[in-house]
Amino acid sequence: MNWLAILDVAMPGPQVTPDEKGFAGWIIGVIVAALIIVTISVVCIKKSIKKHKEAEATGNVQAETGKTEEEQIKGE
């Protein structure tokens, strides 16, 4: 079953064209995709800021790259 069939319930009536239903489905997809990307980004930003603050407090030279000393050595 096409999951967009749920829009038949959400958008009843003959005035809604298949084009509009397709676009509505796409909009739902955009909202879901945006929420997932925003969540991942916020987590990454918070982690990086936390790492930076920790590195700054300990005087770690890796503060600029956001990598731990171990990661830095591995990369090199």
Binding site: I27, S41, C44, S48, G66
Partner: peptide, 27 residues
């Protein structure tokens, strides 16, 4: 900053808000 992951995350966040907002206004 030389923190590549941070640059990607910041740009992804602002870009998604901008583009999803544009699409929603168009909708």
């Amino acid at each position: 900053t030389r923190n590549g992951r941070y640059i990607v995350a910041v740009n992804a966040l602002t870009n998604v808000v901008l583009n999803a907002g544009t699409i929603l206004i168009y909708a």
